[in-house]
Design a protein around this nucleic acid. Structure first.
Length: 430
RNA sequence: GCAGUUGUCGCCAAGUGGUUAAGGCCCCGGGUUGUGGUCCCGGUAUUCGCGGGUUCGACUCCCGUCAGCUGCCCCA
């Protein structure tokens, strides 16, 4: 074989694409139910937009961006995440003058130059959602319900972990405290943490090295340094999510606080969360959704001061964890000679459109041997076969056979009669 | 970016220096021009991820490279 897909890219084959679409459809349905509207934005942006918004100190900007010069020497970057571009579009198109909150969702490929593994790709896809213009804790609470609903509908086992990083003030105080706390241990820490000590002390908290964790275990957590307003928010969210109630009384049962959780992007403040699949096939990459509040992002890239909240779901990771592929369509196969069955299929198509019926039709490409055609229909797991051969045509009839129940009947050769039979079989199945 | 590991047909694989690279599944054709998955017969790798090297001779050994997987880093 001559060509291979580049490292970290993936083909979604026909056998999997219906699962993919199901993930998208379920997400879209839930998002739009809560008032999110779709926004479609470019796959690349000016490099500077990501540097500013995602943050110069992040790994994403430092080593993972697909950056290139176009023929006019503009520095462009394939988007590593969606929020920056959505914010740019929000400002540029004056959506900040729309009634608040503005709720947007989007879907598409993202690009990060990293080592690929199961559930981690260089081109990967996210379903992304943003709420702009509201500081209400309803943003957070509603999102937890919305996401629970999506993952329940997709039959995924998951757990939600939440935390608060606090506002700028809270984080500054915590950073000072934490640096002071760890200073004496500096020589005992792993190399990564030594580096993080200066660059991003918060990140030390979710270090995977056991010895380091033992050192940090004695330290206070960011939530103990929350400013008054941040603390009020945090308590309100926990109350609204029922964390102070008995587990049995909560509407979302599998939600816990994780005081060590931090985020990889710089723009978050206060509430942050991750949704973790408890399915073991995901191994190291078990986070299927993550997000948080970003009240300073819009302003930092030149827009009016606008509070924001958002999250992203990783579609490739969901693909590994979702078992079902959604509603199966009913399939028909015509056993016929290569002539005028298309009159009927054209009619059928119009009926399926009007009646919102999921039907797929196949006309056997190799007419001749009837036995082989039936075998072919069985192999393809077809639901109905339609005999429309000389004998039937003479009487203007069709023989329709349900391959699952083996029932067969002769009906007028008309689309509406076929649709009726199919409908009847679907309703008795349910 | 670092470390380990793997790569023979669409899939699962045998083969470990010696002529034409097993087998199974799938797929295609036939037995069977009008009705059920069985069965039988036949077909499908000038080539072992790719490129070099060693050798009389390489799927087998060496080097490089590409890709997958696992851990780290980080993240959806």
């Amino acid at each position: 074989m001559k060509y291979q897909a580049p490292r970290g890219t993936q083909d979604i084959l026909p056998k999997d694409s219906s699962k993919w679409q199901n993930i998208l459809n379920v997400s879209k349905k839930n998002l739009e139910f809560y008032g999110y509207k779709e926004i479609i934005i470019p796959v690349f942006e000016h490099t500077e937009l990501f540097q500013r918004s995602v943050g110069e100190s992040t790994d994403i900007v430092n080593k993972e961006m697909y950056t290139f010069l176009d023929k006019s020497d503009r520095s462009l970057t394939l988007r590593p995440e969606a929020t920056a571009g959505v914010m740019r579009a929000y400002i540029e198109n004056g959506l900040h003058r729309d009634p608040k909150p503005v709720k947007l969702w989007s879907f598409g490929p993202m690009f990060r130059y990293e080592r690929s593994q199961t559930g981690r790709y260089r081109q990967f896809h996210q379903i992304n959602a943003e709420v702009l213009g509201s500081t209400s804790t309803s943003c957070e609470v509603e999102a937890m319900h919305l996401l629970s609903s999506i993952f329940h509908e997709l039959s995924i086992d998951f757990r939600i972990e939440i935390n608060s990083l606090g506002d700028e003030d809270s984080r500054k105080k915590y950073k000072e405290y934490f640096q002071k706390y760890t200073k004496g241990f500096l020589s005992d820490l792993c190399d990564d943490c030594k580096r993080r000590y200066e660059q991003n002390p918060l990140r030390m908290l979710d270090c995977k090295v056991k010895a380091d964790q033992e050192i940090y275990a004695g330290a206070k957590k960011p939530t103990e340094f929350l400013s008054e307003t941040s603390n009020k928010r945090w308590e309100e969210i926990k109350t609204l999510l029922g964390l102070y109630k008995d587990k049995a009384q909560r509407t979302i049962k599998n939600i816990v606080t994780n005081p060590n959780m931090v985020r990889g992007l710089d723009y978050y403040n206060d509430f942050v969360f991750e949704i973790i699949s408890t399915d073991e096939t995901l191994k190291g990459q078990s986070t299927i959704c993550a997000g948080g509040r970003y009240d300073n992002l819009v302003e930092s890239i030149g827009g009016p001061k606008t509070p924001g909240f958002g999250f992203a779901m990783g579609v490739e990771r969901l693909m590994l964890v979702v078992k079902e592929s959604g509603e199966k369509e009913t399939s028909l196969m015509f056993i016929t000679n290569q002539d005028d069955s298309y009159n009927i299929t054209d009619e059928l198509f119009k009926h399926t459109e009007h009646e919102n019926l999921k039907l797929t039709v196949e006309i056997n490409y190799n007419p001749g041997n009837i036995t082989k055609q039936i075998e072919s229909a069985l192999k393809k797991n077809i639901d109905f076969i339609l005999f429309y051969l000389d004998e039937e045509k003479k009487n203007n009839k069709i023989k329709i056979r349900n391959l699952k129940t083996r029932e067969e009947m002769e009906i007028p050769a008309k689309a509406e009669n076929i649709v009726e039979i199919v409908r009847r079989s679907i309703s008795t199945k349910k």
